[in-house]
């Protein structure tokens, strides 16, 4: 059996299963999510959490599916080439092309955040005096990892443009690689900008249960974006390391295998550990005291 056919078979089974899971969430999902995020469910905030989880699950899954399928459709429409997740029927393969799933998932996570109808302020407008920072919602080490992997990826691309290759046709040339390096840095900066935007979104204090739910939703959205974005950046670093390994420099042949493998493992770890699971906001919750007289 050819690899593209095998990958297509896996996708044919996995995609319907994932979509079914997204559209028919488990009965106790809301309760488990609330427990994991430290939110006490009340009649006031249950609808907000339920709506968010349903939308987030559906949009992220569809985003991931689009990331898996669209490149194949586009490649076929553009050049008539048949490929599935980077594995072409012509024998050419790009094993790290599954990163498009991360892009789709990231876009889906962003759409879920944008589509969320947050509670609006009443006549008397209230706000917490707690300062919201990105590191309240996302560990500082993840922010550092995002920046580091973007910089490492960009430097690696420039390095690919500088080292000699036996087959010069396989190297796109320094100008294109410099452009790709700039795009990688822009992606890293954009990723952090999106996360900061989610933190900055208005949070009027309507009631404390709603604020607690809103904070948990922000944590979840930011982790989903960070997980997919960091996974993509690390996957890119893995690809760059493999690119350097394939150069004509003998010293890179053996030394680049380890970093490439490590980045691949870290990418999958970031996707699983940062992007999914339970997280809690790390800033003092708003209290109900009004200004002292």
């Amino acid at each position: 059996m050819s690899i593209p056919l095998l990958v297509a078979g896996i996708l044919a089974v996995a995609i319907p299963l994932q979509l079914r899971r997204a559209h028919r969430p488990e009965q106790d999902l809301v309760e488990r999510w609330a427990r994991g995020h430290g939110v006490e469910l009340t009649p006031e905030n249950r609808a907000l959490v339920t709506d968010y989880l349903r939308n987030a699950s559906v949009l992220r899954t569809w985003g991931g599916v689009a990331g898996a399928v669209l490149p194949s459709v586009i490649a076929f429409a553009w050049s008539g080439r048949v490929q599935v997740l980077g594995f072409g029927t012509d024998g050419e393969s790009a094993p790290l092309a599954f990163g498009t799933i991360f892009i789709g998932y990231l876009v889906g996570a962003l759409c879920a955040e944008v589509a969320l109808a947050r509670p609006v302020a009443g006549t008397r407008r209230k706000a917490s005096l707690s300062r919201r920072e990105l590191t309240n919602y996302l560990p500082h080490r993840v922010v550092v990892a995002q920046r580091s992997s973007a910089v490492a990826g960009a430097i690696g691309m420039i390095a690919i443009g500088l080292v000699p290759y036996a087959d010069s046709a396989s190297n796109p040339g320094l100008p294109w690689l410099a452009l790709a390096a700039a795009a990688t840095l822009a992606f890293g900066a954009g990723l952090e900008a999106i996360e900061r935007w989610v933190v900055r979104r208005p949070q009027p204090v309507t009631s404390l249960p709603l604020v607690a739910a809103d904070d948990a939703i922000r944590v979840n959205s930011i982790h989903a974006v960070a997980g997919a974005g960091l996974a993509l950046l690390l996957l890119l670093c893995s690809g760059v390391a493999l690119g350097l390994q394939a150069s004509d420099v003998a010293a890179l042949h053996s030394t680049m295998v380890g970093p490439a493998a490590a980045c691949l493992v870290l990418s999958l770890f970031a996707w699983r550990h940062v992007g999914q699971g339970s997280r809690r906001v790390r800033h003092p919750a708003a209290t109900s005291d009004v200004a002292p007289a």
């Binding site: 209230k126 706000a127 208005p202």
Partner: peptide
């Protein structure tokens, strides 16, 4: 103690 940024407080209060 650090107060919220101008943008955060303005957004939250809708002013």
């Amino acid at each position: 103690d650090r107060l919220p940024s101008i943008r955060q407080l303005a957004n939250d209060l809708g002013i």
